[in-house]
Amino acid sequence: IPVGPFQPLLSRVIDCDDPESEEAAAIAVDYINSHNLHGYKFALNSIEKIKVLPRRPTGELFLLELDLLQTECHIVNPLPAENCTVRPITDHVVEGECDVKLLKLDGSFSMLSRKCHSKPDSAEDIIQICPDCPLLAVLNDTRVINAVNLALAQYNGEHEDVYLRLVEIGRAQILHLPDSVSVEFAVVVTNCSGKDAQEHVDGCLPEDQRFGFCKASVLTEGNITVSCEVYGHQTLCLKFSITGVAPLVIAIAGVTHDHLTKEHL
């Protein structure tokens, strides 16, 4: 640090819609999406606050408060978050609030820390906007787990060449008229065919980081509609906890739609 008269560190004032603020926010959202271990990708809704502080000896610190909205892409979906559709508000949206800190040095941003909390919109808000819209169900509800198991069993039964196992349940809604459970869940491709799985399901292990995502609707009388898309090889830092019993469960962080993530880099 050069010796000289004391210079106070004064913050620089920039607007939330300043291109520099937007650049910092875009880098933060990209980082958040690529480092989440569960749930769905988020899109930036607004920059709530920004503070820019000088850093000694060089550079600047950017402190941002961001409002995010859940998209329809699960983290296993390789589609960039910019190309993912933001959930409509009537779909009981989950919003994220993140406090992020970035360092700007020589014109380039790097992440220093993030603290994010996500929570579903309040039931009162949804009912006010759309009285007939279904609300999110708790993910460990017996009806939800049964629906996922039935849907996955049906998919695996119809596709003998591949055997999928459950990674995590993403969303679930219990509907009435007709009584049904609508579920979304992430899956992983295993090293088994359907026939192999009938003989030794516990030996069917995840193969080559190939994930997929399924949507299903299960009516109480047993009518099941399920569709899954399987993606190509990816490098995701998901931790596998193989229990030896089906369904295989990988890194489920919670059974609600609320999550808190803190990380200092």
């Binding site: 004032v13 920039i14 607007d15 939330c16 819609d17 603020s21 937007e22 899109a43 930036l44 809704n45 607004s46 920059i47 709530e48 606050k49 920004i50 409002d67 909205l69 933001v86 508000i89 949206v93 919003e95 919109d121 808000d125």
Partner: peptide, 25 residues
Amino acid sequence: PVATPPAAPVAKLPLCPGRIRHYQV
């Protein structure tokens, strides 16, 4: 002549929050 005192510097406040890209929750 009466000298007008210089106006005190006004601290600029950032225009925040920024625009809402999708909808207000």
